[in-house]
Simulated scan of single mutants.
Amino acid sequence: MKTLKNLIFIFLAIFAFKVNAQTDKATTTKIVEEKNYTFVATSAMPLNNTDINNILSRMPGNTGGGNINLSGSSYDVRITPDSIIAYLPYYGRAYTAPLNRDDNGFKFTSKDFAYTSKKRKKGGWEVVMNTKDTKDSPRLTLSISENGYGSLIITSNNKQSITYNGYLAENAKKD
């Protein structure tokens, strides 16, 4: 019976992930080449660490494996040609504690950054963004599929790396 429940859960999770795609191949190509899109995070996966897994096992709705569901929240990274605006939670080990409680997570706006985009052989893109004017200068590595799904790895000087899965959305046009 438990195996049947697990199979149904996996099927529903895959179906929900497929429904979440926000862009088609042409739109994905256009927004990535124009550097004008938003990465919407649907889940976070901290490094496999026994301390983190012990805490996560006590959280309601825990599915195990260290995967934290962010669906229904407004966590994202907005990329435009002249800025990167990040608003993401952080789960993991920080090597220095923030002085302000509101400084948890990755919440920053960067106007000075390096942006590199490479087309992969098997389709999709590998985008690397290095911020130069933010605290801890996080490095964002975004793997994008042709269908608009993405996996974002953030590496920081003062925190363990974390991976976010999600999808790309087209930024709203300014009038």
Rank of each mutant, 00 (worst) to 15 (best):
T50I: 06
R78V: 07
S73E: 06
G61W: 01
P89T: 02
S74G: 12
N20R: 13
I31N: 06
Y87V: 14
P60A: 06
N53A: 07
M59P: 07
A16I: 10
A86F: 01
I85W: 05
T109V: 15
S57Q: 12
T23Y: 08
K35Y: 07
S57T: 03
T38G: 05
N54W: 09
L56K: 00
E33H: 12
N54K: 14
K30C: 04
V40G: 05
N20D: 10
T109P: 07
I31V: 12
N36S: 04
Q22L: 01
I10K: 01
Y90C: 14
K25E: 15
G64R: 02
I84S: 03
T63G: 12
S57E: 08
K30G: 04
N53Q: 13
F15M: 15
T80V: 06
G64L: 10
D51N: 15
S110N: 08
M45H: 05
N104C: 09
D76L: 03
R58G: 12
R93K: 05
Y91R: 10
G105R: 01
T50C: 01
N104G: 11
V19Q: 11
A97V: 14
S83R: 15
G92V: 00
T28Y: 08
L88D: 09
R78Q: 11
I10L: 11
S71W: 03
A94V: 05
N53F: 12
F9C: 00
N20W: 04
G72N: 13
S43H: 01
T28S: 13
I79V: 14
K30Y: 02
V77P: 00
D103Y: 07
F108K: 00
A13H: 13
S57R: 04
A26P: 03
A86H: 12
V19S: 03
P46R: 13
N48K: 12
S73V: 01
G65M: 05
K107S: 10
T109Q: 08
N104A: 13
